[in-house]
């Protein structure tokens, strides 16, 4: 499991990151890589702070974040509703199961050229790609969670007078929440990767695009800045999801 925020584990978690940065610094200091191609970390972080206040870079971050959030949100809504529906209805399951089996293993990035042609270079194509990639882990974990709800929770609600339909929302959905949130955590990491990838392949803005532009013009420092930014964003978003998770699962023993 993830180390908790603000705990002794945080120190243990930071140590290896510092080690990587030290290694990076070492590579440059001992001349294994020329500073022009592999700029030292201090230089990159300095540049990052410098960039963060410029409106151009903020615009890149905003573009990436919009795509990431929109795609992830669509994936959560679709994944959870399809997952619950498939678990509750054999007819829906019969329809969904083959589609999932065919589409889940497909590298969704292979759809990206088609999406570009259909939806253009703007947000649409990237949001769709992110949603398509994040959907399946969320859908599958929702389905699993909804299918393994304890029988007696459902019986207790039935005896109290809840209809089947009400039980889906009042019992199955909350009872499946631990599983759903695990799917969301995986989906979020995938979203970070895919939005960056899509922007690297073809885009007019965003962090991925900034990296590719810098690489093409041999500006090594500017190449590393978006890279650090996306990992920091991923870290922050994962932390936020962790906060949401511990709030939603405050009653669950395993949380």
């Amino acid at each position: 499991m993830m180390s908790r925020f603000f705990s002794p584990n945080l120190v243990l978690g930071i140590a290896p990151i510092l080690l990587v940065i030290a290694l990076w610094q070492g590579l440059v200091s001992f001349g294994f890589a020329p500073a022009v191609l592999l700029p030292p970390p201090g230089f990159v972080f300095g540049r990052l702070l410098q960039q963060l206040v410029t409106s151009t870079f903020q615009h890149e971050i905003a573009a990436t974040l919009i795509r990431l959030f929109a795609g992830f949100a669509i994936a959560v809504v679709l994944g959870v509703s399809i997952g619950i529906a498939a678990a509750a209805s054999p007819a829906i399951n019969a329809v969904v199961r083959p589609i999932v089996r065919v589409l889940a293993p497909l590298p969704k990035v292979a759809l990206y050229p088609a999406l570009l042609l259909l939806l253009g270079f703007g947000h649409g194509s990237k949001i769709t790609l992110v949603a398509a990639d994040a959907l399946f882990p969320i859908l599958l974990s929702t389905y699993y969670g909804a299918s393994t709800v304890e029988q007696k929770l459902i019986w207790s609600a039935m005896a109290a007078g809840s209809s089947r339909y009400e039980i889906l929302f009042k019992v199955v959905l909350p009872a499946a929440m631990p599983s759903i949130l695990t799917g969301c955590r995986i989906g979020l990491v995938i979203s970070c990767i895919v939005v960056f990838l899509a922007e690297m392949i073809t885009s007019t803005d965003g962090l991925g695009h900034a990296l590719v532009t810098a690489a093409r013009t041999f500006q090594a420092v500017d190449m590393f800045v978006p890279l650090i930014t996306i990992s920091l964003l991923g870290l922050v978003l994962n932390g936020l999801l962790g906060v949401v998770r511990s709030y939603l699962l405050r009653g669950f023993p395993e949380a």
């Binding site: 054999p90 709800v149 029988q151």
Partner: peptide, 25 residues
């Protein structure tokens, strides 16, 4: 997994997960 500690079987032979939630409902 779905089987509660000492569940009596609930009379549904369908072993798919979906069948299980439906049977529960």
């Amino acid at each position: 997994n779905g089987r509660g500690s000492n569940d009596a079987p609930h009379g549904c032979a369908n072993d798919s997960l979906s069948g299980r939630l439906l049977a529960k409902l």
